[in-house]
Design a protein around this nucleic acid. Structure first.
Lengths: 214, 214
DNA sequence: AAAAGCATACATACATGAATGTAAATTGCG
DNA sequence: CGCAATTTACATTCATGTATGTATGCTTTT
């Protein structure tokens, strides 16, 4: 089958992305042969090289398709957060976990990113983007925590930097481990108590990091 | 250089493990060529094939060398925990983080495991061992939490399963993210407040997972 | 105690297969 | 007709596993 219309070309691209996600998950990114991806998508390797420069670019495209929804959420957060910053943090965390719990593609993507991928030099652009996203996310959340302290929702002694990194680690760990065993517990149900537990810890005994040299 | 004594052979094996850890970290496990590892260790590929069946077995050996100390800690824990189970959990968590904060090799190992490795079929034995270790670890900790509930250290409504998985995720996330940026904060110093924050959350608002269908 | 025999601990050489990137050919749309 | 999209064919590179070589230490024998 050869080319049809411009729309069909986009469909091919999408099929390639979907196929890549699957094969990445099954074989790992590095051991994935582009011929497998092509075959799964019903085309040949040539089609991949037309749409993407190489495997790294394909992988990047796969990742970006998955991170878009989450970034959209974050963008909203920084604006509507005036009233109840802690609730906003809570909602963000819950939405992220819910998204993971409910969407098979999201699960596949995080499975690949967490367990089926090696972040080395050849994926430098992806790593750079990840870093940027993470930094942006962290600073957004820290701002919310700062506001929470200002509102009196958190103790004034709270180290919002640590609180942010702690929450982020918690989220990453929950996703990292849950995708290993989605059967182990119902994430959609447990997300709420899990998040509330951490937030309660923040309120009860916020992290305070004393300067290194006393 | 040819063979010397049995002790020297063990030294070669150790050199190979150390070299492998480095190269795995630099190039990722999959893209690591055994020739690189051999060269770094000052031997040839033949030496590797003598000591290990293939790359997977080499990787497994690298991992096992790193997980031994942690497992030893856990083994102790289940016995001495009668008096103050929560303190035991706290100590375990702190020791794990401290170990990571202070030992370059541990950092390298977790960097490899978290970010430089693809867990696919060819690493099945390693995955199986990881699963077994994690399950054992989780059940140990859950027992401690159960005891903590029995002691009145935690509310009787506490879902110790969720509490355990939450703590585990927290630990994994902290290590996963910190090795990405060891400079971002002093883990040795911050481990205590971070852990205490989560434990406070457990005491203040323990996770309770209601059954799926009311 | 010395020498012979054997297993160990590697090194070297080779054959094989496999994936990649590119270049050329092909086909359908505008 | 010319370009977009995709296929097919090709050359190259590269890591792997294995097979063989070899020298050293270890053991056993006398």
């Amino acid at each position: 089958m050869v080319r049809k219309t411009r729309v069909d070309a986009l469909a091919t691209r999408d099929a390639l992305l979907a196929a890549a996600l699957q094969v990445f998950r099954e074989r790992g990114v590095t051991r994935t042969r582009l011929s497998d991806v092509a075959e799964r998508a019903g085309v040949t390797r040539g089609a991949i090289y037309w749409h993407f420069k190489d495997k790294a670019e394909l992988f990047q495209a796969v990742c970006e398709r998955g991170t878009l929804p989450v970034e959209a959420l974050l963008a909203q957060a920084s604006q509507n957060a005036q009233r109840d910053p802690l609730a906003m943090v809570r909602q963000l965390a819950l939405m992220a976990l819910t998204q993971l719990a409910q969407h098979a593609d999201t699960q596949a993507m995080f499975d690949v990113i967490f367990h089926k991928c090696e972040f080395t030099e050849e994926l430098a652009p992806v790593v750079a983007k990840n870093d940027a996203d993470r930094t942006a996310c962290l600073s957004q959340v820290q701002q919310l925590f700062d506001q929470a302290v200002a509102c009196g929702q958190l103790p004034p002694t709270t180290d919002t930097f640590l609180a942010t990194h702690g929450l982020h680690a918690y989220m990453v760990g929950l996703m990292h481990e849950w995708v290993l065993n989605p059967e182990s517990y119902d994430l959609a149900v447990c997300a709420e108590p899990l998040i509330d537990c951490y937030l309660a810890g923040l309120a009860a005994r916020p992290p305070i990091c004393r300067p290194v040299a006393g």
